[in-house]
């Protein structure tokens, strides 16, 4: 097992390196002057040159990349051009915020999606199946921000049960796990959960239907197992794949949803990326993309390993 883990980590390293190179290059390939947002429009050529030198934008790209990578390895992703604060801190604060709603959304999506998918797959072609499939299609196809606004209108404006926007009574800086803060989490997480819910429901429905059509289910019945006993076997057969799907969904959600975070003014990664792009804040953009990409790679790794541990059919070759 340890050998397997090390090997998997070994595979992940070149991927991470490639990812960081791409992050760096993509941002540099995009047109426009990186300093345009902080330099006054009438800045002299001399000032501009000095600033370029200060940020290192005048060096060859490869050298810039290696310097950036070296510093990144030491936890330093540079300074945000717009706010002059260290990129690392900015990104991790945003990631933390997004992580909260993403994990909650994944949990909601996984639970409801599995439930719907299971019922639909188990009672295929029944009214319960049609209802569950309808709900999951709605979940995937309705625009997120629209759902978010509807939820805000219903639960904040009409019922006044939950706050509409923000990340806590005093902003996001003093987060605490009490109701005063947690209530801010609910609506964005709920909104975000619709897509993973729909995807998990569809996957689980197909998995359950496929499992039930296998010969071994007849074998289980022939041993005298009742529906509950059969159900237990079906769950164990479907769990590894269902977990993998939700793990990948969590990865996507970590990138934050610009639209959802904007609707709810949630200071997460989507919000941050949005800001970085519009202000052409190169260090911030590179840093946040890099961190998100690394999270994604690690999460993939985790999902793979978890699946291998859970599913005896997968050889640890």
């Amino acid at each position: 097992m340890t050998g397997y883990l090390l090997r998997r980590l070994g595979y992940a390293l070149p991927i991470m390196l490639g990812v960081s190179f791409l992050c760096f290059m993509l941002v540099h390939l995009s047109p426009g002057d990186p300093l345009v947002s902080i330099l006054p429009a009438d800045a002299s050529a001399e000032l501009q040159r000095q600033m370029m030198q200060l940020y290192g934008f005048d060096r060859p790209l490869l050298e810039q990349f290696l310097r950036w990578l070296w510093r990144a390895l030491h936890g330093d992703l540079g300074t945000s051009i717009a706010t002059s604060r260290p990129v690392t801190g900015e990104v991790f604060r945003a990631v933390g915020n997004t992580l909260m709603i993403a994990v909650l959304a994944s949990l909601i999506g996984f639970s409801l999606g599995s439930l719907f998918g299971f019922v639909a797959g188990y009672f295929r072609n029944s009214w319960a199946d049609r209802l569950a499939s309808f709900v999951s299609v709605i979940g995937v196809s309705l625009p997120n921000y629209w759902l978010g606004m509807v939820l805000v209108i219903v639960f904040s404006a009409q019922l006044m049960w939950l706050p509409a926007t923000g990340a806590g009574p005093g902003g996001s800086s003093d987060w605490a796990w009490d109701w005063a803060h947690v209530q801010y989490l609910i609506l964005p997480a709920l909104t975000m959960s619709f897509i993973p819910m729909g995807i998990v429901a569809r996957t689980v429905r197909a998995l359950v239907a496929d499992t039930l059509s296998q010969e071994f289910v007849v074998g289980l019945r022939a041993r005298g197992l009742g529906e509950l006993g059969v159900l237990r076997h079906v769950v164990k057969n479907c769990a590894p794949t269902a977990l993998a799907v939700v793990g990948l969904q969590l990865g996507y959600l970590l990138g934050g949803s610009i639209l959802i975070e904007t609707v709810f003014s949630w200071p997460g990664t989507g919000f941050l990326l949005n800001q970085a792009i519009f202000q052409r804040d190169l260090p911030l953009l590179q840093g946040s993309i890099l961190i998100l990409a690394l999270f994604f790679v690690l999460l993939n790794l985790l999902v793979d390993v978890l699946q291998t541990v859970l599913d005896p059919r997968i050889e640890r070759g």
Partner: peptide
């Protein structure tokens, strides 16, 4: 009790 033709398919793989 029943014995099936292809035990690989008739036993739960997990």
């Amino acid at each position: 009790a029943m014995i099936f033709q292809e035990p690989l398919l008739a036993l739960d793989p997990v």
